[in-house]
Design a protein around this nucleic acid. Structure first.
Length: 544
RNA sequence: GGCCCCAUCGUCUAGAGGCCUAGGACACCGGGUUUUCAACCCGGCGACAGGGGUUCGAGUCCCCUUGGGGCUACCA
């Protein structure tokens, strides 16, 4: 049976790269009818945050990537948090030392740094000088007594090339002379990543390891470890990296960077109000703008929201908050470095699972193209692609996380809103086009350009008044009734429908962007529509 | 610097030596449809990084150059 896993280190939110790695592993397991496990790699006590692991789990759940064994649900080979598996690692480390395959070291960080610098100066690889005789228990005691750090390294004794059979890259051969004895146990007693990952993958029965290219050069070390411990070597697949439009890696630093640029480009920014919105002090904001520090993510998000600056989405939650569907992301990430080979692009989860094939994973790096993502979202937002009740569920979650007034709508109304906005690109767009119907009349903001063009130029206001009078004669409001009425009015006045509809649109929602006008009026209701026409008439007649 | 990986339109990619006059999608440009924004329909622009081989024949195989990426931690 095929067993894959996703093993994030809980240092923050799940980001694009992590999600893509998780997805490929999940896809392979699901398509093969195997198992997909989740394991938390929290051996770095300094970098891990308490809430990050939970957040990563939530992000995966939102994407619809489910797991068969994991820290929250357990499983036969738990625990699934590396910090809770210390005794297991200790046993194997002791075994390697007993067998003379690993040895203690007492170097200080400063000494190691010196070695590194020296190696670089001499333009050679930094290879750790293995002692002729390995330190014994007494030596360890002595070192500890002197306050020196105690670590354990694997002794690399192999001389034949290490061969990696990679499912996407083919056969790769590495000369072990290039490799240095590496640390398998840190001075704080925790295993290093290499040690923990090898033991866990063996014990948890992982058969296929799909991970980023950044791990390719770790693989020789892992295979050496597997050999030393008598473990099987799982099938490896190293996938390409997805880079940002800016060039480098898709980095979370892009968000503060974009915000900083935007603030600096603005003329009159109220620094105090901005700092306040972000929950930071003016001094902290100042330090940020001078490139010294960077506020945390919630602060960056809040300030961007205040200024109306759109930040590039990096973390999965960013995409959620921007109005993307999880179906879109799953589809899009799958196609970043893989394709079904038959030209299909827009696919749902089932189709992806059925078509997935490790042998069709691409070798070269790819660029994250947000425009194409947007286009994918447009497709998945159509009811022919995603069931309406699913869209409603996602839409409600979106509205709630963004505190939208549209959240007041019940599911039936939400369904209708989604239907009449067929063709929208994001949930955010639907929300913006619909919120006029959920705002109090006095909260409608009139777009200056729209007012000028539609109401003030020509006889827009007169037309609006006529529309108001005509609408008032209707006894019952239906989209069809409104359509008949407005079309009749346009014909009577010998003008196109636009001349009638546009002033009405501006009157009820303040700008020229709205759902189809008949639905828009119907949603608003007779009373509010007439009231807003009245308010608009009064407001702009006075101005003239 | 050392080691490793990669290289087709602006972007994601199809391409397993003759099906290639290099196909699709996004973007872009032009047109159509239209009550707005979208969506939708039609058309157009646009690539085998360069140089050597191998072969009757190379985008496809080999070598070199160039370019991009990764690793080079008591991070994962």
């Amino acid at each position: 049976m095929i067993v894959t896993r996703f093993a994030p280190s809980p240092t923050g939110y799940l980001h694009v790269g992590g999600a893509r790695t998780a997805l490929f592993n999940w896809l392979l397991a699901r398509q093969a009818g195997g198992k997909f496990l989740l394991r938390i790699e929290d051996t770095d006590t300094k970098r891990n945050t308490a809430t990050a692991a939970d957040q990563v789990l939530r992000d995966l759940q939102w994407l619809g990537i489910d797991w068969d064994e994991g820290p929250d649900i357990g499983g036969p080979n738990g625990p699934y948090k590396q910090s809770e598996r210390r005794d297991i690692y200790d046993t194997y480390i002791a075994q390697l030392i007993d067998e003379g395959k690993a040895y203690y070291c007492f170097d200080t960080p400063e000494e190691l740094a010196e070695m590194r610098v020296a190696a670089e100066k001499e333009k050679r690889n930094n290879i750790y000088p293995r002692p002729a005789v390995f330190p014994d228990a007494a030596a360890v005691e002595k070192a500890r007594a002197k306050g020196r750090p105690v670590t354990v390294r694997l002794a690399i004794t192999q001389t034949e090339p290490i061969v990696i059979e990679d499912e996407v890259r083919g056969t790769i051969s590495i000369d072990p002379a290039e490799l240095s004895d590496f640390i398998i146990q840190k001075s704080d007693g925790f295993p290093t990543y290499h040690m923990a990952v090898v033991i866990d993958d063996e014990l948890m029965g992982v058969t296929h390891v799909i991970r980023g290219q950044e791990h390719l050069m770790n693989t020789p070390n892992h295979q050496l470890l597997q050999k030393a411990l008598g473990f099987r070597i799982p099938t490896y697949a190293h996938m390409s990296v997805t880079v940002s439009e800016g060039g480098g890696k898709l980095s979370k630093r892009e968000r503060p960077k974009t915000l900083k640029k935007a603030i600096k480009a603005m003329q009159d920014v109220d620094i105090d109000a901005l700092a306040n919105a972000g929950g930071i002090t003016s001094d902290e904001l100042d330090s940020f703008l001078n490139g010294k520090t960077s506020p945390d993510m919630p602060a960056v998000d809040a300030m961007a929201a205040l200024l109306g600056v759109h930040l590039p989405e990096i973390n999965i939650v960013d995409f959620f908050r921007s109005g993307y569907l999880p179906e879109t992301l799953v589809n899009f990430f799958a196609l970043l470095g893989w394709n079904p080979g038959d030209g299909r692009e827009i696919m749902d989860r089932e189709e992806l699972i059925q078509a997935f094939d490790l042998s069709r994973v691409t070798k070269s790096n790819s660029l994250f193209d947000r425009q194409k993502l947007m286009s994918f979202n447009t497709e998945h937002l159509k009811t022919t692609m995603t069931p309406l009740d699913t869209l409603v569920r996602h839409f409600r979650a979106y509205l709630e996380v963004n505190d939208s007034p549209v959240a007041k709508a019940d599911d039936t109304l939400l369904e209708r809103i989604i239907r009449i906005n067929e063709g929208a690109r994001t949930l955010e767009q639907i929300e913006q086009k619909t919120r006029f119907a959920f705002l109090p009349d006095e909260a409608i903001e009139y777009d200056e350009k729209a007012v000028k063009k539609v109401l003030l130029k020509g006889d827009g206001l007169a037309m609006l008044a006529a529309v108001g009078e005509a609408l008032a004669t209707l006894t019952k409001l239906t989209p069809e009734g409104i359509e008949t009425l407005l079309r009749g009015l346009a014909e009577e006045k010998q003008v196109g429908l636009g001349k009638v509809a546009q002033p009405l649109r501006v009157a009820i929602c303040g700008n020229t962007i709205s759902p189809p006008i008949f639905d828009a009026v119907d949603m608003l209701g007779m009373e509010t529509t007439l009231k807003r026409i009245q308010i608009t008439l009064e407001k702009f007649r006075q101005d003239n």
